[in-house]
Simulated assay, not measured.
Amino acid sequence: MTVFCMAFVIFELFMIYWFAQGVVDESINVGTCIGLSNWYEADVKTLKMLQLMMIRSSRRLALRVGPFYDMELDVFLKICKMMYTVVTVFKRNL
């Protein structure tokens, strides 16, 4: 039962970090998509809005865990490595 619960928690954590990585990846593509659109056919108000969106898209979006770190798949792998290390140390000491 403990192994099943541990596997479920790891899978749930993986899914959360997977979708957080999707937010990061898609935020990078916003400026490119605006640039590839037919922006030159828009009115002045829309052009100003698109310009603001492109300026804002130069910084990537990320979900943060409090003030600590951004949620990315690299961080998930570090968490898994740390959990494996802790389990190995405790198993060796028993």
Rank of each mutant, 00 (worst) to 15 (best):
S27P: 02
V86C: 01
K91G: 05
F68L: 15
A20I: 05
G31E: 08
L36E: 12
L13E: 02
G31H: 05
E12M: 13
C5L: 07
L52V: 07
M53T: 00
R60E: 08
M6Y: 01
Y84R: 11
T46L: 12
V30E: 03
I34W: 03
T46P: 04
G35L: 09
F4H: 05
R64N: 15
G31M: 04
Q51I: 07
E72T: 14
N38G: 00
K78N: 10
S37H: 03
Q51R: 09
G66T: 08
L73E: 03
L52G: 06
S58R: 15
F90E: 02
M54H: 07
L52W: 08
M15R: 09
T88H: 03
T32L: 13
F76Y: 14
I55N: 06
Q21C: 00
Y40D: 14
S37V: 10
S37I: 12
F76T: 08
I10T: 06
E41H: 00
M49E: 15
M54P: 00
V44M: 10
I28A: 11
P67C: 13
L36Y: 08
G35D: 10
F68A: 15
F11L: 15
E72D: 12
G66P: 01
V75H: 10
Y84M: 14
M49F: 01
I34C: 05
T2K: 05
Y17R: 06
K45G: 00
V89N: 02
G22F: 06
V23N: 01
K81S: 14
V75C: 09
V3Q: 05
E41V: 01
M71P: 02
Q21A: 07
M1E: 06
V23R: 05
I10K: 03
S57G: 05
L61Q: 08
M53H: 00
N29M: 11
F90I: 04
T46M: 12
I55S: 04
M6A: 08
T88E: 05
Q51G: 04
Q21Y: 01
N29L: 11
F76Q: 01
R60I: 14
E41T: 10
D43L: 06
M6R: 10
R56C: 11
V3R: 00
F19K: 11
W39M: 11
W39Y: 13
V23D: 00
T88Y: 03
L63V: 14
V75D: 06
R92S: 02
W39Q: 07
I10A: 09
F11S: 12
L77D: 03
L63D: 02
A7N: 13
D43K: 11
V3D: 05
D74M: 02
A20F: 01
R59M: 14
Q51P: 04
R64E: 15
N38P: 04
E12L: 15
I79V: 13
T2L: 04
L61E: 01
I28C: 06
K45P: 02
A42M: 12
I55M: 13
F11G: 01
L52H: 10
T85N: 06
V30W: 02
K48I: 15
I79L: 15
V89S: 04
K45T: 12
E12K: 05
V9Y: 01
M53F: 09
Y17E: 00
M49S: 13
Y84E: 13
V44K: 10
L36D: 10
